[in-house]
């Protein structure tokens, strides 16, 4: 039961091709909880593949030509708090700041957050709103999957056994973006409800993503489209009636449950309030820069 430390994508690909029982370790802040509590047990022939030393996975690349920010899957929360990410993808940066504690942000990675496929994943919610795409790699080659299509159920994603998340591609866009999350204490809390809003003043579109109100992070397609078409982008404004419709559509897209953290009714209420506030805040900011 060894631990492998591949140092490059090539080595990693090769390893996953050769070994049949591999467990990818991408920070461990979620995986280790399962091991510690006995809910996850390693089989004797499992090979743990620690991704920490895979050089390419921790790269951050800003490509203004292609208008894309490429984040290696091994980039840690802590790295997301500063430039250039904080400037190019501020809602991802805000989401990162709400994740756990400094200890968690030092160890946890964006790839790990995605692979865990939790509907409460703060980073995932931001990335869905950002219309980010994942590059999944194996010895068979690469494929791209929208972040919104990656998780299919709690703790289930579309990764094949020999595949790994190589990087996240985030479109760079002018405009405004924000992430808000509700928890019942002021720090160190799992999201009861989270909303990310990205307003693109280039494409005149709005994308609204919701966390913790369904089995996966939800892209509120209808609400996003309605907001995109009803916002008067020239003056960065929306009528209160239209905004109310956006809020109602957002709530309608949420399918929350009652659990020990909150109620379905509160969660629906909350995603509406947060969406309204984020859009108002975004448009106010955009108006100032007109």
């Amino acid at each position: 039961m060894p631990v492998a430390h591949p140092r490059s994508i090539g080595e990693l690909t090769e390893l996953l091709d050769e070994e049949s029982h591999t467990v990818l370790l991408a920070g461990g802040t979620d995986f280790m909880v399962g091991l510690n509590h006995g809910s996850t047990r390693l089989a004797p022939d499992d090979l743990i593949v620690d991704l920490r030393l895979v050089a390419e996975l921790s790269t951050v690349e800003v490509d203004y030509q292609q208008q894309v920010l490429r984040l290696g899957a091994g980039v840690r929360w802590d790295d997301l708090l500063t430039a250039p990410i904080a400037e190019i993808a501020p809602c991802l940066s805000q989401a990162a700041r709400t994740v756990g504690s400094h200890q968690i942000r030092t160890a946890g990675t964006i790839g790990g957050n995605l692979a865990t496929a939790s509907p409460a994943g703060d980073g995932v919610c931001a990335l869905v709103a950002l219309d980010a795409t994942l590059v999944l790699t194996s010895s068979r080659g690469q494929r791209t999957v929208a972040v919104s299509e990656f998780a299919i159920a709690p703790k289930k994603n579309v990764l094949e056994r020999d595949e790994f998340i190589e990087r996240v591609d985030i479109p760079i866009t002018e405009g405004w973006q924000g992430y808000s999350k509700i928890g019942t204490r002021n720090a160190m809390v799992i999201s009861v409800a989270g909303v990310a809003v990205v307003l693109s003043s280039e494409s005149n579109t709005c994308r609204i993503a919701l966390g913790s109100v369904g089995p996966t992070v939800i892209l509120s397609t209808e609400a996003s489209q309605f907001a995109g078409t009803t916002i008067n982008w020239e003056i960065a404004s929306i009528t209160s009636a239209d905004l109310e419709t956006v809020v109602e559509m957002t709530r309608a897209s949420a399918t929350p449950i009652d659990d020990h953290r909150s109620t379905a009714a509160y969660r629906k209420h909350a995603v509406g309030v947060l969406t309204k506030r984020l859009i108002e805040q975004g448009l106010t900011t955009l108006r100032k820069s007109l």
């Binding site: 430390h5 370790l25 461990g28 802040t29 091991l35 743990i48 920490r52 200890q103 968690i104 030092t106």
Partner: peptide
């Protein structure tokens, strides 16, 4: 501190930090 970074040692797989 793991390579100078603050982490929770309960969330670190011991065998993965030999280096």
């Amino acid at each position: 501190l793991l390579d100078g970074n603050l982490v929770c040692s309960c969330l670190v797989l011991a065998a993965s930090v030999t280096n």
